[in-house]
Every structure is written in C-alpha cells, then in structure tokens.
C-alpha cells in the first residue's frame, strides 16, 4: 500500500538490526505509520517489539535500511530534537526514582526550558488527564502502585505535547480491571489528541481494542499487517496461530464479532 508522503509520520525502509554485528534482532522490516493512527506492534516476548520502538527514537541505530520520521532519516535528525518530539512510554515504566511525580511528568518541559509556572500548570493538567490525584504530585515512584506509576509514565510522555507517541506495553503487569480502565481512557484520550501512536503489546485483546492497524512481529520479522477485523479472520498461518493461542477461535470467531 502507498500513502501520500505527508500522511506518513514514520516509515521503516528495509530495516534490519543486528546485535553487535552478529545476532539479528530485526530482519528487513518495512512499514509505514500513518499520521494520527494507532499502530499496534503485536508479538510474543522477545520477538523484537521494543527493539523496533527504540529504532524510531534512535536509541538504536539500524544496521541496514533506514527509518524516516517526518520524511527525514533518523540518522540525519538532531537526535535530541527527534526524541523531544516523540513521547516515549517505557516498558516497566522507567521513571526516575529520585524525582517525585511532578518532576517526572514535567521532565521534558523542564529540559526544554519552559518557565516554571507553565510547567506546574502543565503537570496539573496532565495529572488530571491521566486520572492521577493531585495529592500524588509530591510522591516518589516507589511510593506509588504499579497502575499509578504507569499513569505517570503516560503523563510524562504526553507532557510536551509531542505529535508522535511510542508506548511500550504501557498497561502491562496490571490487573485486568485496571487494565481495561486504562485502555478505555486511552481510547478516549486518543480520540481527543489524535496522536500518531506506535503501541506495543503481546495481548491480542488489547491490540484488537486499541489498534487502527495491527502489525504482527515474529522473531524479528514483520509477518502481517492488518486492521483488527482483518486480523481476527485472517487465514495466514502465523496470524491464525496467534489468534488461536488466545482462545479466540472458539468464542469470538464463531460468533463473528471481536
């Protein structure tokens, strides 16, 4: 499929990534992320999802091929500017243990030298947006529950209002109820904010619920790229195997609705 260039936020062109020139973690991946869509990277543990995200904000450099962000190769981007326009929700959160909630959330505005009062205002705004009680502002990450930490991670990524968001299993390790709640909030938020989101998960349900399109990754290869409906009913062996593994074939497929 081809997209008009200005409709593309991120493009992978034949990207491979080798670890220290030996083990291949990604093999010849080509994919485009359209502006405003939520592209879900779905795949089992160790398939290369985090690696793919880190290539977008140039925490990793592709061994072969190139990644274009807003039409420019990540190799040519001023890496600091690139990263500041890409919000990043890190797997296992990655909050700064020595910063309280407010400082964690306000980090990117702070390094962008926003005035203090504007940072404060923005932090309050974001805490409300992600449903964090304002009393938590002075707490440290270790004093929060897992769900609260993940909300802080999301708020931090949104702080400087970046057009692109990378979310690495942002709702992992949560109880199903909290997870469902955060997923609903994400959908509502995304409707309002219209960011370009690359969302990593290994959970098929989450992928079907949140994704505009779903990219299935297996052992470092992009093996399928579908809308949620296409994905669910695909006859491709690897897609069907993933869907079956979630026990969807019995109930959902038969009923014919996701």
């Amino acid at each position: 499929m081809t997209d008009p260039a200005d409709n593309v936020a991120v493009e992978f062109r034949n990207v491979s990534y080798h670890l220290n020139g030996t083990r291949e973690l990604l093999h010849n991946v080509s994919i485009t992320v359209r502006r405003g869509e939520t592209l879900v990277l779905l795949g089992r543990s160790g398939s290369g999802k985090t690696t793919t995200l880190k290539l977008i904000n140039h925490l990793l450099e592709p061994s072969e091929g190139e990644i274009l962000v807003n039409g420019q190769s990540t190799r040519e981007w001023d890496v600091i500017r690139l990263r500041r326009m890409i919000g990043y929700v890190i797997q296992e959160v990655g909050l700064f243990p020595h910063f309280n909630v407010a400082r964690n959330i306000g980090l990117v505005p702070q390094i962008e030298d926003w005035p203090v009062s504007r940072i404060q205002q923005r932090v309050e705004e974001l805490m409300q947006l992600v449903g964090l009680d304002r009393q938590l502002a002075s707490r440290y990450p270790r004093e929060l529950s897992g769900g609260q930490r993940q909300r802080v991670g999301v708020a931090r990524a949104l702080a400087a209002d970046p057009p692109i968001l990378l979310m690495d299993e942002p709702f992992g390790a949560l109880d199903p109820i909290t997870r469902a709640e955060l997923q609903r909030e994400f959908l509502a938020l995304q409707k309002r904010l219209q960011k370009t989101v690359v969302f990593v998960t290994h959970d098929l349900r989450e992928a079907l619920l949140l994704g505009t399109r779903i990219a299935l990754i297996e052992s470092g290869r992009l093996v399928a790229l579908h809308t949620p409906e296409e994905f669910l009913y695909s006859k491709e062996a690897m897609v069907a195997a993933y869907v079956d593994a979630f026990g969807f074939e019995s109930d959902l497929r038969k009923r014919g609705q996701p």
């Binding site: 925490l59 600091i80 990263r83 990655g94 700064f96 390094i111």
Partner: peptide, 16 residues
C-alpha cells in the same frame, strides 16, 4: 542503565 536510557529516550543531553 534502564534509567539512563529512559533519560536519553526523553531527549536529555549528555550533560543533563
């Protein structure tokens, strides 16, 4: 290292 990488990912410079 994960914390340092988080900082990098946020766009911090080396001195920050």
């Amino acid at each position: 290292p994960a914390v340092v990488e988080a900082g990098r990912g946020m766009g911090m410079t080396d001195s920050q």
